[in-house]
Every structure is written in C-alpha cells, then in structure tokens.
Nucleic acid binder design. Structure first.
Lengths: 244, 244
DNA sequence: GAGTGGTCTAGACCACAAT
DNA sequence: TTGTGGTCTAGACCACTCC
C-alpha cells in the first residue's frame, strides 16, 4: 500500500512525503490562525486516520514541528500550539518589555505618534508592496522604570494588522501584537551606530551629540511584508546580548 | 527485546533512549576530532549492529543530526561529517575575511601583538579556568582593501590551541583557525557602543572621539573555555547584518 | 481505566550512487 | 549489481495525564 492517497490528483501532489503533508497541514492551520497558541491539535491517532498513515509517520511530523518550535507536546495530555517565540535563538529579538521585567524592573511606554498613511514609491519598492498601500505608523518610547530605553519607530502593513490603531500599547507591545497577527516572521536586520535626531534624543533624554545603538528590522510573514521597525537606544546604557 | 544493552551498568545509563545514545556516539566522535569534516561515518546498517537496534532508530538519530547541522547525507552514497559552520543562523558570526571577499573586496590583516601570558584571577573566575592557566593573546587588524575595519583582541586557552602562536594569520583568521581546533562552539555575545582607546582608534584610522561598534564574544567548546574576543569596528563604516 | 505521547521493532519498497 | 539512505507500515510496551 503505497499508492496515491484518495482525493489526490494522483502523481502531482502525492510526490510530497506523507510526513511533510501532515506538517504542512498543521503549519497551515497555525499560520492561518485557525489554531491559536495553546490550542490542542488533533491527536496522533486522529491524524493517522485523517491521512491514512501509520502512527510512526504522524509522530515524525509532529516531532519535527516540536523541534521547529511550533508545537509543544505533553505525554498523556496531548499536542498544543506553542506560545509565540520571539526569535528565541538567532539574535535574541525578544520583547523589550520582557527583557526589562526579567531584570526585575518595570516597563511602561508612551505613544508619541499613531497615524495612517500610504506607501511611498521608495517604500513599495523596498518592501515589495503595491504603491499607495495603506500603512500604519507608530512611534513609541519604552521605559525601564523611569528611564527611556528605546524609541521604536514602526511601519505596519494595514492589510496584515487592520486593527493596529485600536490597540492598547500599554498592555502589549507592537512586537507582541505582531507575533499574534503575523506569526512565524522571517526577515532581515541591521545593527549599527547612528546619530539621533533631536526628536529621538529628547525622547531618550540624551544629548543629540551622543551615538545611538540602532536595530532596523524588516519582517515578512507568510512571504508577505508585515512590518518595518527602527529601534533607537542610548549608546551608553543599552546593549544587545545573546547566547548561541 | 527491550532490555539493557550488553556492557551497560544496567539501569543507570540505559535510561537514555537508544536514538540518543547513537547521537551521543556520533557527536563524541566529531567533537573529539576522530571524525573530521567530510569523513564518512558508519552506515545505518553498521550502526544497527553496533547498537543492536532497528534501522528506524538509527535513522532517527542521524536525521536529527542532519537537522542540527552536524551531518550531511547522500542517498546511495553515505553519511558524512558536515563542513564547519560559522554560526550560520543566529547572529551571523561569519569570518570577517569571508564577508569582505563576498563584497568583492580584498582582505588582509596586520598582527599588532602576539604573546603568551597566564590567566589573572579575574579571568579565571570569568572563564571558569584554573588560576595561572596559560593563555595566548593576539591583536590583529583586519583591512577591507586598504581601510581598517576591525581590531580583534583575542585570548585563547593554550591547552585548546597549543600551536596558536605559530599560525600564519594571513592565510587563516583566528576565527577560522578556532573552528578547526575547537569545533561546535557555544557561548555568549554582547554588542554595544564603546569609546576606543587611542591605540584602537589609531589602528582603525579614526578619531578617538568617535564611537566604536563592539562585539565581545566568549566561546566554549565541549563545555570548556576556548576563546574570548573583543572586536572593535569604526561606527561610521561598519554594521552587523543578518537574516532570520 | 481510557487516552495520550515516547520509544522501538522487523520487516518493506523505492531512488540513487558507486562499481 | 550492490549498497546506501528516504520513507513507510502495523504492530508493540511504556509512562504519563485526566477523569
């Protein structure tokens, strides 16, 4: 029994190994938001019947998704969608609010700008989006206790996050919010030194003559532009750290 | 047949799943240098007999080592130790010489310092090595064409790299050399802004009043301290970039 | 006790590489 | 042709969780 599965175009799609088809099925359900973080997914037994394969095949598919960080599994209990990861390995792009709380300090933030705009031609080229694409922009200052630590200047695709302007950024940072609406991001980053504008310098309570440590990130979710962020940090009281 | 394997203390070690014991066996042979990059490792059939397990179990072990980047496998040919990775994913800590050549420029370097010394008490605490442990130190300037781009101030454990002082750094950077003698490193990094010493500033042909983009890395290989490096870059002509 | 995932077996067929 | 890895099956025993 190694024929094309029922309901298949027989030949084309069935070249994909069964374990990969099962992985794709789970990934699609997570990406599309049908299954959210913490939700239980079908049991191995159920997936065996759905795909007409043996348990070892289902087990391999789910095990690989655990390795990829998409699922968590508990013996005797079931398999669940993993909580969103903040690019755990790689360079530790975690929530800055998280970082601050991990150090035992309090985090709060102040919204400087919140606006609706449309993509310039330069932006549509750079992000691969249509000209005039509706975008949202937020500029938020993050504080560690009462010290400003980051100015986050962010652009978000309005199609990806239509309710961006209605969020309460004191409850959830833009980063945390985007992990929900645009899961499994990929992208590029740059870390470099830049001189702050007077506006940024004053938001960070630092002299405009001092350098900033800047991370610029562009993220894509599901091969579609999601967000672009420039994060400014005072060079004398911020560093990136990580393990690998 | 699900009993403790022959030659085992029966109970203690045999709690480790068979696939994990096989992985450990392969990892140990790579870590210790018995199997070098490109070498063929035993076939699945051979490992089945060595460990007295079925082929599926061996297959799982080797497949996971491929995912981890330790092995490459070729259908019909065999399984081989993967070429050393320069921390491919994570923050792209590649060879700076590589980066420069990828940009189509030439790389060369100048050795400023090369010396033998012993660990201070502060260093032995920090790196978890014995007091007075013999160390080597190198200070090397890396150039992109004729422009200095990095001052690399490095400490290396003399036990890990006994021939460190005899290397030709124009052929192979310290980073590349260490990937050979201390494979599979893990460690921590810090990226931050620092003011250069006059010494560093002059080596980088930059004013001492300008900020440097600095990465500091401590690496461990096989749970043993291997190297500590501080890399200074002129803030106005260097950036870290990466994908994830 | 019923259901779940963790691990493992002893076979199998296949595509591919080396000879 | 022989040997390799890639995939898969139809069972199995176990430890664990939840009821």
């Amino acid at each position: 029994m190694k024929t094309a599965k029922s309901g298949m175009p027989a030949g084309a799609v069935s070249d994909i190994p069964a374990y990969q088809r099962i992985k794709n099925y789970v990934i699609d359900n997570i990406r599309s938001g049908v299954w959210k973080a913490g939700d239980p997914i079908p049991t191995e037994q159920a997936l065996c019947e759905m795909f007409g394969v043996s348990r070892m095949t289902v087990n391999r598919a789910l095990r690989e998704l655990v390795t990829a960080g998409l699922l968590v599994r508990h013996k005797g209990a079931g398999s669940f969608v993993a909580p969103p990861k903040f690019q755990s390995t790689l360079i530790q792009i975690r929530s800055i609010a998280h970082d601050i709380r991990d150090r035992g300090h309090t985090h709060h933030c102040k919204v400087l700008t919140l606006e609706r705009l449309t993509a310039t031609s330069e932006q549509s080229d750079r992000f691969g989006i249509p000209a005039q694409q509706p975008l949202f922009r937020s500029v938020i200052v993050h504080y560690e206790d009462s010290t400003p630590l980051q100015v986050e200047d962010r652009l978000v695709d309005a199609m990806v996050a239509p309710d961006y302007l209605e969020q309460d950024w004191h409850k959830r940072t833009p980063n945390e919010y985007l992990m929900q609406v645009a899961p499994l991001p990929t992208g590029r980053y740059i870390i470099e030194i830049r001189q702050p504008s007077t506006h940024v310098a004053s938001a960070l309570s630092m002299p405009a003559s001092s350098p900033c440590l800047v991370m610029e990130r562009t993220t894509f979710s599901n091969d579609r532009f999601a967000s672009h962020a420039v994060m400014w940090h005072p060079g004398d009281r911020y560093r990136f750290t990580g393990n690998w």
